[in-house]
Design a protein around this nucleic acid. Structure first.
Lengths: 164, 164
DNA sequence: ACGACAGATGCAACTCGTTTGCAAACAGTA
DNA sequence: TACTGTTTGCAAACGAGTTGCATCTGTCGT
């Protein structure tokens, strides 16, 4: 989907002033190769195979990456946040969040987003980021509901946790 | 700031098919009179004075209000979500979230928001809501940092929880 | 007004994402 | 190689939000 895998791991870490540890390389690699934004949990899963790494370390690495503007964080209802590369190959764009399966996907850029950021920044220099988030049901969940309207996936409202 | 207080409590509850309990009236009143979106915690505080009410009840009431399209929910990094009236006196608009004091405020509507919702809906009917969220430092926190750059409020990155 | 019943509330305990404190492991440098 | 600041792992904590269940309360029919 997104033109990923372009960013060099070493260069990226260097430019952010971060030393090259195996854990940071692993997390960054996972993010660079991700087809869509990843949650901390997903990152931990993908990285656990290669070498020993801890949940806490993942969170700390993500915090340092965000501090170095290597990645962006995308908030969702439900508390679980997602992370994606913030390199020039991946300009800011809207996201779509499925309230049923709680997956996040990227939408084509509306083009306005960075322009807005500039405009609003001029008006009030404290603004640092813009996020445009769409919510609804992804195709798969919509079909699932059509098949079983009484299932665990309710209408545009419903409970928060989908799994018991 | 926002032209609130216009919505009749009874009518609003009735139209959503919700019985008129003292707790629902209290929560709805708090939201109608709020000058900016409120978190569940803030709602609980404001409502605790008037009659007995429980945290869980607040969450359940908010869920039912959202189900009835009485309110909108605004997600933030940090997991704490905010709620605001969704009546016709308060059309959808962007929000600004201060990453330091974690307050949420309303921004003037860019006008695009509802139009976008229509357009994207046409392309993929599963989309239900759009959210436009700006992040940064509010005026107060910016000044605070200027005064004490080594204080608890770091740069555009930093940790999440501000309190110990 | 009264009584019954579905729906709403309170309480306690829980889940889950995220954070903190501290000691052990590590990287970069002298 | 020894030294020193950084990074990691572990366990425990935190806070928002949720669930199960017993109790209470609107609402509706009489």
């Amino acid at each position: 989907m997104s033109p990923m895998g372009h960013c060099d791991i070493n260069t990226t870490l260097e430019r952010a002033g971060l030393s090259k540890t195996s854990q940071r390389v692993a997390v960054l690699t996972a993010l660079v190769h991700a087809e869509s934004p990843l949650s901390a949990r997903e990152i931990l899963q993908r990285v656990s195979g290669k070498g020993r790494i801890n949940k806490v370390t993942v969170y700390r690495i993500l915090a340092s990456f965000k501090a170095g503007s290597i990645i962006r964080e995308i908030a969702t209802d439900h508390g679980e946040n997602f992370f994606e590369m913030a390199c020039r190959h991946n300009p800011t764009h809207p996201h779509f969040y499925c309230r049923a399966c709680r997956s996040l996907s990227c939408l084509p850029s509306a083009g306005h987003q960075d322009r807005w950021l500039q405009e609003y920044r001029a008006a009030d220099e404290s603004i640092e980021t813009v996020a445009i988030n769409f919510t609804g049901l992804c195709r798969r969940c919509r079909n699932e509901i059509a098949r079983d309207p009484a299932g665990p996936l309710q209408g545009p409202s419903g409970g928060k946790r989908s799994s018991p």
